[in-house]
Amino acid sequence: MSSDREKIFSAIRAALDPLPKRTAKPEWKRELIVCNPSGEFSSLKEQLADKLVFASSRYCDSFDQLAETLKAENSTFGYCDPELAPLFEKLDGITFETEYDVAKVNEYTFGITKASAAIAESGTIVLKDGDTSSRMGALTPWIHIAAIKESDIVATIPEAIDRFGDDPSIVFCTGPSKTADVEGILIEGVHGPGIQIGFILS
């Protein structure tokens, strides 16, 4: 193996040595990649709500409304992060387990896990491994409910990147799982959630 390493590094050096000069790293400011706002918003929460919907996710901040949504989707049994369970136990007519059992992969119709942050400019939910109680619980059910603390909403993508720390697996979720592989027709819910809900905890 080490010989392949050496071969690659010496080939790179041999390729680059003859260059008379090398391109400098461009200086660029974060504002460069921040996109035009899609309207006027009084708070990041309001902007996030708008952008979640734009990205085909759903916004929710009321337990009653969430219970109604789940019932309307015929989704009354699911998985919930044990630390969030006390909050969501009050959902009327909804039951869940707090330990993900792989044998029930097709029985859990919703999963509730913590979001580490949300990005207002893009309607993105940020999941970090350190905050996610079960990767399967956030991925396999038809409906994923990401519980976002209002104070964890950031304005832009660069601010979300600032919060990466040393987490080994961070996922930006911007909308439900989707494909347009068959004739360019958009279908939601391929391998992951068909419905992505951002639930704001004030």
């Binding site: 734009f54 987490d167 697996s169 961070i170 996922v171 930006f172 979720c173 911007t174 909308g175 439900p176």
Partner: peptide
């Protein structure tokens, strides 16, 4: 605006 899933993987799970 963004692809649905952008994953940043830096090692084995926690």
């Amino acid at each position: 605006q963004l692809t649905v899933y952008n994953q940043f993987i830096g090692g084995p799970k926690l």
